[in-house]
Amino acid sequence: MHKLGISVYPDKTPMNEVYAYMEKAAKLGYSRIFTCFLSIPDEERESYLVEFKEFMKKAHELGFEVAADTNPQVFDLIGATPGNLKPFADLGLDIIRMDGNFGTQGDIQLTRNPYNIKIEFNASMDMGVELLINNGGNKDQITMCHNFFPERYTGLDFDLFMEYNRYWKELNLHTAAFVSSNNEHTIGPWQVFCGLPTVEIMRGLPIDLQARYMLATGDVDDILIGNYPATDEELEALAKVNLQAIEIRVDEAEGISQNEKEIMYDFAPHWDRYDHSSFMLRSSSPRVWFKAKKSVQDGNMGKDTQMNVESQSIPYRDPGKKVFTRGDVLIVNDNLAHYRGELEIVLTEIPNDGERNLVATVKPEELMLLDFIKPGHHFKILK
């Protein structure tokens, strides 16, 4: 099950502002919080941990699960050890994210704690987790979360990101990764202002598109906003992302008919045929749905047979191009009546033979999503 999360840094922000942000996110369905113990000055840590208990109480009241970034030095400062996580349990913490380790046996002890505190390891590089599991680590208390990367051009390569996630899924481990707000003057654990994404190519993209790329891979469970605060519009956009189907945003062609709009937007879900073509994605079910829908509508309105036929018509419309290219969204027209109403998305250029109408074009920054729609995979088109 997917969860959405926010990041907050109470040591850098007035607590009333943090609480207001949490309340806003909770109302939209967010249920995870990431925070960080690593950036708190040593001289302030004791007083901060007192305040942190109240923060945890508020978070739990709002239904959040909270993870905090820690390392062995943090353990020393609060009096915890791999065999004694009571200081963290007393704080009410749900997840300890390890930035560093205690060696194989120490980390195994962490995963065997009696407080049901999950131990979160670095999904961006920590390949020693399988060794822990094979040597007695408790998989039920192990979870994986990627890094975020404050510095431009240093985020994870997307192919490597997918490779890691496939590996964690082979071990049946829960995964999380960070998307980044494009709000101005956001903060993180340190004074950096270039966003906090996991994957470099996602830096600067709309926040919902970042999430849709991650979900399209099929191997990311939880999506967290790394920097604070996201705008209200970003929180809402991310909360509206379809967690069950790949969503693709398009630029609608001029002059398309109401019938074509219904096929493109109202039919759900579209899915690529199992007998997949390398030239196009084919959503064939809309042609049956469209024919039945129009027949019922026209029958209820008492129209004669000729008008029924016309309402089910999709006349050819000249798109002004001889070749359709990758990302063009097409609907089969009356010139190929048996397949009329089928929606297709071009993967490799094909000639315009007059049997298909151009109804939209996938936005350039969304074209890579087409690579993730495999035979049988659901997708939805957004204007």
Rank of each mutant, 00 (worst) to 15 (best):
V8P: 01
P10R: 05
N16E: 15
N16Q: 13
E17N: 02
Y19G: 01
Y19F: 11
Y21Q: 04
M22N: 02
K24Q: 15
S31G: 12
T35Y: 08
T35G: 06
T35I: 06
I40V: 05
I40T: 03
E43P: 05
E43L: 11
S47P: 00
E51V: 01
E51R: 08
K57F: 08
E61R: 08
F64L: 06
F64K: 00
E65H: 10
V66R: 09
A68K: 15
P72I: 03
V74S: 12
G79D: 01
P82H: 07
G83H: 04
F88C: 15
L93Y: 04
D94S: 06
M98R: 08
N101Q: 09
Q105F: 02
I108K: 01
Q109K: 02
R112F: 01
I119E: 08
E130W: 02
N135M: 14
N138W: 10
I142N: 11
C145I: 01
E151W: 10
D159P: 02
K169P: 02
L173Q: 05
H174C: 03
S181A: 15
S181I: 10
G188N: 11
P197T: 04
V199G: 03
L205S: 15
L209P: 00
R212D: 05
T217F: 04
T217N: 07
D221Q: 12
D222G: 13
I223K: 00
N227Y: 14
T231R: 06
L238E: 09
L243Y: 00
L243S: 07
E247M: 06
R249H: 14
R249E: 15
A253M: 12
K261Q: 10
M264S: 10
D266N: 11
F267D: 11
H270M: 11
S277G: 15
R282S: 07
P286T: 02
F290K: 06
K291I: 10
K291L: 14
A292C: 06
D304G: 13
M307N: 06
M307H: 12
Q312H: 04
S313K: 00
K321L: 15
V323M: 15
T325Q: 09
N333P: 01
N335C: 03
R340S: 09
E342G: 11
E344M: 13
I345C: 11
L347F: 14
E349D: 03
D353H: 11
E355W: 02
V359S: 02
V359K: 00
K363N: 09
K363Y: 05
F379P: 14
F379E: 06
L382P: 04
L382K: 08
